[in-house]
């Protein structure tokens, strides 16, 4: 092992970039999923539970089958099932979607902990990564650019969803269901079915986001694995104005915000770490206050959304 060069403060920058890439993926998948769901006119506040259940099922399946990709798939399917439950209950008249979300947050987390006990100790195979930094002579840069395939998938998915929502027929149906349910019905589309599919897709993505936590980074399963990434991603969607492209950017920002505290601590800035670690939450709240207004709904907000009314 040759000693890497001393980066000092430049190391903080590398850590922020690396952190943005490492930490952002769950945010990205959950926020893309929630964007789809909210664009159809529903809020699913239960994606934290979906994320945790996804993390557990991915880890468990990867451990039992030896295939991490099978784990990712099962995580997505588990998420889609929770999405189906959410959408079905919410399709009943006079059921509050936010409340059902909170219920599924509890249920998803509970199921994950309930079924996940035997998987805390074993070690599951990890998802592979691509060495995008192979060109660099600096081991720090190489490590920062050690990128997981799921991150790349998310990076591709974001513009794809952006385009699909804008330019395709089903994108239009989805948006119509979300902006004006009556108009969608008048056009002969089933609002209920559209929302079921959108919520299931959202759940699938959130489950996949969870699999990243357990199968890649930090790469373990235990009951403290998620520190609220699934909840934060929902706030992130509002800040990203329901735009998949913006979700990608904001997810990176959140990833960097998470990496900020540890990066500063490692160069000896050790005061106020508790407050620094709350940076992503404070940042979200500040941005929310800044971007909200009482005079009009948020720009880009789907008209049917309970959360923006």
């Amino acid at each position: 092992m040759t000693p890497p060069p001393d980066l000092g403060w430049a190391g903080v920058l590398v850590a922020l970039v690396g952190g943005a890439i490492r930490v952002s993926t769950p945010y990205l998948f959950v926020s893309l999923g929630e964007t789809l769901t909210e664009r159809s006119g529903r809020v699913n506040l239960g994606l934290e539970g979906t994320l945790v259940l996804g993390a557990m099922s991915a880890y468990g399946v990867a451990y039992l089958s030896g295939s991490p990709w099978l784990g990712v798939l099962v995580a997505g399917l588990a998420g889609a099932l929770l999405g189906l439950l959410h959408a079905s209950v919410c399709n009943l008249p006079r059921v509050n979607d936010i409340a059902v979300g909170i219920a599924l947050f509890l249920l998803g987390t509970g199921l994950a902990f309930y079924l996940g006990k035997p998987f805390i100790e074993p070690r599951a195979p990890r998802l592979p990564s691509l060495a995008l930094g192979a060109w660099s002579g600096s081991p720090q840069v190489r490590a920062a650019l050690e990128v997981n395939a799921l991150f790349l998938a998310g990076a591709v998915l974001a513009p794809l969803l952006w385009w699909a929502l804008r330019g395709t027929r089903w994108g239009l149906i989805l948006r119509t269901a979300g902006d004006n349910a009556d108009a969608a019905r008048a056009l002969g589309h089933s609002v209920g079915l559209t929302r079921v599919l959108a919520t299931m897709a959202g759940g699938f993505l959130a489950g996949v986001g969870g699999s990243f936590l357990s199968l890649y980074y930090p790469g373990t399963w235990n009951e403290g694995l998620s520190s609220g990434q699934g909840l934060m991603a929902i706030a992130l969607v509002i800040f990203a104005r329901w735009n998949p492209l913006a979700c990608f950017g904001v997810s990176l920002l959140f990833g960097a915000a998470t990496a900020l505290g540890p990066a500063l601590q490692s160069v000896g800035i050790t005061a106020y770490y508790d407050l620094l670690n709350a940076a992503p939450y404070g940042l979200t709240l500040a941005l929310l206050i800044w971007s909200s207004s009482t005079r009009h709904a948020l720009v880009g907000a789907p008209g049917e959304l309970t959360i923006s009314k």
């Binding site: 106020y272 929310l288 959360i307």
Partner: peptide, 27 residues
């Protein structure tokens, strides 16, 4: 207040305030 005068959704803001309260407590 944020809800009424600034239009900030109270569900999201109280959720974030939970995390902030815990961070302040820990500090």
């Amino acid at each position: 207040a944020l809800r009424h005068w600034r239009g900030v959704n109270e569900t999201i803001s109280t959720l974030l305030l939970n995390y902030i309260a815990v961070a302040v407590l820990n500090w």
